[in-house]
Design a protein around this nucleic acid. Structure first.
Lengths: 224, 224
DNA sequence: GTAAAATTAGACGCCATTGTCTAAGTCGTC
DNA sequence: GACGACTTAGACAATGGCGTCTAATTTTAC
């Protein structure tokens, strides 16, 4: 039980999980074969059965693994919120780029969207967990961010939750097709899509403002 | 070869196609079994092989059938565009409700989204066809509509294509979760989601203001 | 070096599914 | 009633995947 053994076991485990994620994502649960997973993982079939009792056990483990990784990444993204309203358009744009690149348009994001959609009805608890810790947490955090920015007078929003969902939707508007395809968008596409999204969002919810320092009268009253 | 025989064949064919759509949608291509399709269709397995050479032939036929129905429905939806700018918010809202109810949140829409995502990489031509005749045609038509409304002075839009994609994205913003789930949203949800979408869209792209009834004070100030 | 643990390749039984085939049955038309 | 087209239930071989087992080999621990 020293470090080496653990590392060796962990290595195989990770190799299996990665390969299984790849194959499950491409073929779906029913279409994926243990033999193919073993081949991709460069591991014998027996080793897989040594770590996971059966195919379904492996599948659940894979989904939970990817979900954990994705949730951790999302959490770290949420800590990069632009709290400063000085340069909101650029800051929000950069945030959307980061979010899309690291959480939504990456391998894990693709895997989760695909698998949740195909196997979600068969594993309701997995789906529910993903919904809460993924999109749920994102919109909650965005909603709180928009509330703070509204109090600062940088935004004019009546319903923060709706605004949060719309913000996410706008951020994906130009990428829906690329992502649905399976092909990841280029950095240029990501940048342009984010810029379009944030501009429209700010046209709708941005301070009607003219001069930078000024704050909406009615909001200034609330801000105390 | 009389009418009756033909009708009988058509009836069986339709029955098979409907059942296959149901089973393929729930189980995916690999997970679906011909026997289950036959059982759902109340037809013997041999009858299926009589109409379709093999499983893949049946699958392609099902997808094409659903796509044709969905495209026809979308085409008829596009003819109900609100060209009159008198009551744009209500008209656009009603249009979004119709679109979501009849094209996106219905059985066919769910089927296509799910199948295109899972089997799209295996059948690129099917996916490409869907992309062109479905979302592609929708955004093209919306783009043209927004151009007309802009020329009338009812909207202020710089990039019609981007606005069209954003319009669609906003229209789905509040329904993403319900739809991803598999459960169809209620009429009330549809109405509220469409209202939220159109309000935000018009805040971003609507004519700065008019002397119409309920206009935001700060927007009225800008209207000059 | 030795023992324990993990891994491997391969064979195996089992079961589900695919696609074919056959013999019987149904339905409508002449 | 006879005929043809279609359907049906069931048997059938072939395939492939799952999960188990074994014996040999490698890796790791001490």
């Amino acid at each position: 039980m020293t470090g080496h053994t653990q590392r060796g076991q962990c290595f195989k485990r990770m190799s299996i999980l990665d390969a299984a994620a790849d194959v499950f994502c491409r073929q779906g649960f029913a279409g994926a074969s243990i033999d193919e997973i073993a081949a991709v993982a460069c591991v014998s079939r027996q080793t897989i059965y040594n770590h996971y009792r059966e195919k379904e056990t492996l599948f659940v483990a894979v989904v939970e693994d990817v979900m954990n990784r994705a949730n951790t990444m999302l959490f770290s993204m949420l800590s990069t919120f632009p709290e400063n309203a000085d340069n909101l358009e650029d800051d929000l744009t950069a945030f959307v780029v980061r979010l899309n690149k690291n959480c939504i348009c990456n391998h894990d994001g693709k895997f989760l969207r695909k698998l949740v959609q195909t196997e979600g009805e068969r594993y309701p608890h997995l789906f529910e967990s993903w919904r809460q810790h993924g999109p749920g947490k994102l919109t909650t955090a965005l909603s709180a961010l928009f509330a703070r920015l509204s109090h600062k007078g940088a935004l004019v929003i009546d319903d923060f939750d709706v605004a949060a969902r719309q913000f996410v939707a706008l951020g994906n508007a130009d990428l829906q097709m690329s992502v649905l395809f399976g092909g990841m968008p280029t950095d240029e596409e990501l940048e342009k899509a984010a810029r379009n999204a944030v501009r429209t969002f700010l046209k709708a919810y941005g301070r009607p403002a003219t001069e930078k320092a000024g704050v909406q009268p009615q909001l200034a009253a609330v801000s105390g």
